[in-house]
Simulated assay, not measured.
Amino acid sequence: MVRSPLTPQQIAAGKRLGAHLREARGERTLAEVAHAASISPETLRKIETGRLATPAFVTVAALAAVLEIRLDDLAGICVSGGPAHAALQP
């Protein structure tokens, strides 16, 4: 099966998601967060830079749990360009 190319909207959503996750990571190292989410640092790097625009749901859910971000906020960022609720929670 051949995967269809990503649309410009999907690419933009992936970049917004990555930027938000990078901001939420704050001072924590990429390796620390990746390890806590049980993903490779390279996968997290690709997500944060927008090179992996459509990460698997379980990956996003694991990152949301580690970074203490609501999944509906991440969904809002991907779908509409802004969080559904408060963007980053202290």
Results as ranks from 00 to 15, higher is better:
His20Met: 13
Arg3Tyr: 09
Glu48Phe: 01
Ala64Lys: 05
Ser40Asn: 01
Ile69Cys: 11
Gly82Gln: 11
Glu48Trp: 04
Gly14Val: 09
Ile77Val: 15
Val58Tyr: 03
Leu21Gln: 09
Arg25Tyr: 06
Asp72Phe: 02
Gly26Phe: 10
Ile47Lys: 06
Val66Leu: 02
Ala31Ser: 14
Thr7Arg: 11
Val66Asn: 04
Val60Met: 12
Leu21Tyr: 12
Leu17Gly: 08
Pro8Met: 07
Pro90Glu: 02
Gly14Cys: 12
Glu48Pro: 00
Arg28His: 13
Glu32Gln: 15
Ala61Asn: 10
Glu32Ile: 03
Thr59His: 02
Arg51Leu: 14
Thr29Phe: 03
Gly81Leu: 14
Glu68Val: 04
Arg45Asn: 14
His20Phe: 09
Ala12Met: 08
Gly14Phe: 11
Ala64Gly: 06
Thr7Lys: 10
Glu42Asp: 11
Lys46Gly: 10
Ile77Glu: 06
Leu30Lys: 09
Cys78Asp: 01
Arg3His: 10
Ala37Ile: 01
Ala19Cys: 03
Gln10Trp: 04
Arg70Val: 01
Arg25Lys: 02
Leu71Glu: 06
Ala62Gln: 05
Gly76His: 09
Pro83Trp: 08
Ser4Asp: 15
Val2Asp: 14
His20Gly: 00
Ile11Ala: 10
Gly76Tyr: 12
Thr49Arg: 15
Pro5Thr: 09
Ala87Trp: 07
Leu17Met: 14
Arg16Ala: 09
Leu44Phe: 07
Asp72Pro: 03
